[in-house]
Design a binder for these strands. Structure first.
Lengths: 228, 228, 228, 228
DNA sequence: TATGAATGAGCTTTCATTCAT
DNA sequence: CATGAATGAAAGCTCATTCAT
């Protein structure tokens, strides 16, 4: 939806503007974001902005599209689960995508979370494409597959579980980033092959364990809990 | 921090203004909230607003205090866990509190979530009281207790688990509200004794199960997952 | 012009309000003075103000009347000049009055100067009484007397001289106050019998000398100045 | 301190705004001056004002700079005194500068007097340049020179005299303007060569006489005055 | 196409004044 | 008479948007 002039810009300038906009939308909702701030930070003329975009919302939608595009790039590498064990490998990959996205585009990731906050799941149907922007669709699919493969406990409410997985997947990656930075005492460097970072491996594995097996020590705990 | 004049108002007028402000802050950050909108919706003169509050932030802080106060009312009814089983009953109560808060004050609940969004967990220390506004503290305590009572699996990373529980507890209640409204086709009536609503019971129980036992059907799954 | 209610107040309260108003009008013109500031500083209710005065200008006029009244008290002690020497003693007394007024009511004195600034001499006819508020009238009278008594040089332009004396008399006293405070290192205590303070005596005498004899060392200087 | 945009304006528009501002600050202190009045009188949009200036104070400081700049233009033509007689010629020139400034920029002159009123001599150090805006410095210098050249009576308190000369020089010019307008019945036209206007010549000469020789007819008067 | 000055609606905030208690 | 809440006009200032160059 940006005007043609925007796409005729040199890549470096276009990306400059995009990055400045991402910064703005990471810290501000569409309502409180400021055209002034963007043109000042990007060092472009006020008038130029309106030669690239209809208005602020136009730019915002473009940034949201960036979110989708860049995430799809990562998702495209994801194979479908083929057998029993792959059910949870698939879940692991879904989480790895979120982590990779957070590590590669932490600010863009925050833009996405902000969008999801302002447009809660039940109303998050993209009016243009008709698709959900949030990851729920994928988690529903994952759970359906898992039920078919007999990997998911039958008593699980799949809609609830999909929601929980969505929330957890959305909020796990910033926690990971934060904690890694805290533990190492320095900002995290991006390494797309996240599975090779032992820190990431450990935490992701622990999360997977929690999701797969819960936090109770004794598997009997459930029965006891309700029998009491 | 509001001025005395605000507290001298009749209860009905004070609550009118509070409710209008809650509406505003549920849908807007402090940055994008508008004094104009509030005075118009509350039907008060613009000048009156400034006889009640220093400025918008003053009112915002007051609303945040309402969040804390009203949640504390609910929390105050919560007994500490005494024995084995009580560990998870305690967790259940923590979730029930969030549910009760959401059902009783759904908009105020959204104000709180918005605040937590804008002030992420790692920086959410209330500068005035020094306390965390988010529930993490409680979840850390819960997990510590659980570990002591040998109810929590030893391999669980408690900081991660506390974070996950915090996120889930924060986002479960709006899902519950949404889903109940959807299923019944009408807005949910508040009933503080949430445990008596079968819908709530079922969903909360399912969430508890997921948290306690995970979603994997076979307890062996974890070993297989990593052995592969 | 204040309402009767104002004059029915206890003396202590009335003077409190007057003093607060004097402070306000010493530092602000009528345009920039603030009713809010006055009621806050005086600790009276906003509504009370409007039960005492029509509006701010009403109070301002009252304060201007205080200026006149209090100065007249001092002036009333001034005898008319009777012989040769008394011409300059009279001038000395005029200056002493200004000094006494400054020492006794420094802030009121500043109110008067501010008034004279905003209402320059040529337009300073008091619309109510038809009299001039500034001292010019007295200096004109003094000079007329001096000419009659053959004490004033005949070449002196009396209108100019009256103006110069007016300006000097108006601005000498704050200089005196400032310099005394500076020299002694502490605020000046009021002593109505100003002639007994050696500092005041010295400076006033020096000013009298300057006015009487000018600053040139050689009386011939004037002739040389123009003959050249 | 005004923004670049202001200096990029056409000279005619810039001067229009400056003149309107001078009018405003001639009649109002910074406190009571009004952005609204200025934009209305200048016929510019409110938003434009804030593209030229940070705020009202920014414009005010610019106008104060105009005062300094334009006066310096006139002062720059002033030679230092070289011999006996030149002492008083120097004083005469100082007064002529004030007169010329008043005649050429009467409203700007009033802005300066207002500034000096609000920022009395003892605290009138310009916080930016560290220089005094008022002419006192020059009068102190003049008197020092005069003492060195044996032109100033030794009994004169030079600090007092400098103050008196400062006050008189500041207030003489508006008097002159006023009186000339009154006497001739029409507004005074500016003529930079003020020494050629007989009216100005006469009054300035008379003032010089008063300053040099005082107003007493008999040089003996001083001795008699104090001997009595 | 790039620029940045121009614009006025709209924002937050202050203020003098009124008025019910 | 004292009080202080209520009011809305008007202030200073910001902003998205337009437009001439």
């Amino acid at each position: 939806m940006p005007k043609d002039t925007f796409f005729h810009l040199s890549q470096v300038k276009r990306q400059l503007i995009e990055n400045v906009a991402i910064e703005e939308f990471a810290d501000n909702s569409l309502q409180s974001a400021s055209v002034n701030a963007i043109v000042n930070n990007a060092g472009i003329a006020k008038g130029s902005f309106y030669q690239y975009f209809e208005n602020l919302e136009d730019l915002y939608k473009h940034i949201l599209k960036l979110v989708k595009d860049r995430k799809l790039e990562l998702i495209s590498t994801l194979p479908l689960p083929a057998n029993n064990l792959d059910t949870f490998r698939y879940l692991q990959r879904l989480l790895q995508i979120e982590i990779a996205f957070e590590l590669k585009y932490p600010r863009l990731s925050r833009v996405e979370r902000r969008y999801n906050f302002e447009n809660p799941v039940n109303s998050s149907i993209d009016p243009e494409t008709g698709q959900r922007l949030s990851g729920d669709g994928r988690f529903h699919a994952f759970l359906s597959q898992g039920v078919l493969h007999d990997d998911i406990a039958t008593w699980v409410d799949t809609d609830l579980a999909a929601y929980v997985l969505g929330v957890v997947s959305q909020w796990f990656s910033p926690y990971l980033l934060e904690r890694m930075g805290q533990d190492s005492g320095k900002p995290v460097e991006f390494n797309l092959d996240v599975s090779h970072d032992p820190h990431v491996q450990d935490l992701l594995q622990n999360l997977m364990d929690i999701l797969m097996a819960g936090i109770a020590r004794d598997p009997q705990i459930r029965k006891d809990f309700y029998s009491k």
